[in-house]
Amino acid sequence: MRLHVTLRATLAAAAAALLVTLLPAQPAWAHAKLVKSDPAGGATVSAPLAAVTFTFTEMVKQQFSTVVVTGADGVSYSDGAPKSVDKTLTQPVKPLPGGAIKVVWRTVSVDGHPIEGQFTFTNAAPAPTSAAPSSAPPATSAAAAEPSSTALTAAADPILDEGGDGGVLWLVLGGVAVVLVLAGGAFWWRRRTT
């Protein structure tokens, strides 16, 4: 009889621990993913672009987003900071030169997980007819066009102060719940045997 009660209590505690550990952890690991970009990677654009847009599976943090749009001349054509509205991140751009355009992006999911990527597209749009800039590119070095790893890391560092990945929180809460269930089962078992 005593073995039957102990076995039943142990199985109930194990089932509760398994549920607590597995069920809440699933949403914590669901990070934002890029669904599409406009223009898409590998596309050829025939009309002038005012912005490059990204659509994600969930919202992203605007303050930690970086998008660098670079022409074949090595100059950055990003115009200001990217803006985030709902699940869309938009990076305004200056008039782009013809040829290959490289887009390097980095952002952060609402759960604190950094995501990044890059792609290229071809700009075949006619050059703008209004007040074309001088033939010499602005005094911007090619190194400034690429986001440095230090800058990208610095953009992600504040996330650690906000609590980091939500998965750690769920693991800690799950561990506490398992301990409470086991302690309750032991207390119940002790009271039943006395």
Score class of each variant (00 low, 15 high):
21 T>C: 12
41 G>L: 11
15 A>R: 07
2 R>I: 15
17 A>K: 05
28 A>H: 06
4 H>K: 12
6 T>A: 11
20 V>Q: 06
5 V>Q: 03
40 A>L: 04
13 A>L: 03
6 T>E: 06
42 G>I: 01
33 K>R: 06
7 L>G: 09
3 L>R: 15
38 D>L: 13
7 L>P: 09
12 A>F: 11
42 G>H: 01
6 T>C: 10
19 L>H: 10
16 A>C: 09
10 T>M: 15
17 A>N: 01
32 A>Q: 01
43 A>Q: 05
18 L>Q: 04
38 D>A: 14
18 L>D: 02
15 A>M: 08
9 A>W: 10
36 K>C: 07
6 T>I: 15
2 R>M: 05
39 P>Q: 10
3 L>F: 12
42 G>S: 08
40 A>G: 07
40 A>M: 03
34 L>N: 03
14 A>K: 01
3 L>D: 14
30 A>Q: 11
36 K>Y: 12
17 A>S: 13
6 T>K: 07
13 A>I: 14
18 L>Y: 02
14 A>G: 09
36 K>N: 15
30 A>Y: 08
12 A>L: 15
22 L>H: 00
32 A>D: 02
34 L>E: 02
10 T>Q: 08
5 V>T: 11
8 R>H: 10
30 A>F: 14
32 A>R: 00
9 A>V: 13
37 S>K: 05
6 T>Q: 06
40 A>I: 01
39 P>Y: 00
41 G>Y: 06
11 L>A: 07
34 L>W: 01
16 A>F: 13
42 G>Q: 00
12 A>E: 06
37 S>E: 11
40 A>H: 12
13 A>C: 05
8 R>W: 13
24 P>H: 14
33 K>V: 08
42 G>K: 06
14 A>N: 00
26 Q>C: 15
12 A>V: 13
39 P>K: 00
15 A>Q: 07
39 P>A: 03
38 D>Y: 02
